[in-house]
Write a protein that binds this DNA or RNA. Structure first.
Length: 145
DNA sequence: TCTAGCTAAACCC
DNA sequence: GGGTTTAGCTAGA
């Protein structure tokens, strides 16, 4: 398994790659030494510079049918827009609780833009902390044109 | 304002 | 295999 690291304004992002497929993305609240790793790190870097709106590399996800359906849908949420757990649940005909659970178990944040999914009355949680979610949402809204 | 019910899959015995 | 847990939401009191 290979590892790539990209630094951002508020910390580092680690991307784990196996057989040329991303299997996990992790947020760190500390700054690590950057490690280039082909398109994986270059696309993430472009995304944080606001030049790229969608990550397009191979990933490997082994999970249940419903989770996959939810993640597929979340990937279709346009750049800079947000939806609530409830809206997604209604469209996919699942329970809102399951949507939240799927997000919490999502191994590939950013690739699956779960930061664009918020609660009805609150931002709610995010892998690695709400700080990242706010940062990502702010990044996208400032890039809208 | 507060409580109960819904509901899927990872995770731990 | 079974019980517990989890980034929500709605309806009824």
């Amino acid at each position: 398994m290979e590892k790539g690291i990209v630094n951002t304004e508020i910390g580092s992002i680690i991307v784990y790659v196996k057989d040329n497929k991303a299997i996990k993305i992790e947020f760190k609240n500390e700054f690590l030494k950057e490690i280039e790793l082909g398109i994986f790190t270059s696309q993430i870097k472009e995304y944080f510079e606001g030049k790229r709106k969608k990550l397009l590399f191979n990933v490997e996800i082994n999970t249940g049918k419903t989770f996959k359906k939810i993640w597929d849908f979340v990937r279709e949420i346009p750049y800079g827009q947000t939806m609530t757990y409830g809206q997604i649940a209604k469209i996919l005909n699942v329970n809102p609780r399951v949507v939240g659970f799927a997000m919490s178990k999502n191994p590939l944040p950013i690739y699956i833009p779960c930061h664009r999914v918020v609660g009805k009355n609150d931002i709610h949680g995010f892998t690695g902390g709400r700080k990242w979610k706010e940062y990502l949402l702010n990044l996208e809204s400032s890039q809208q044109y």
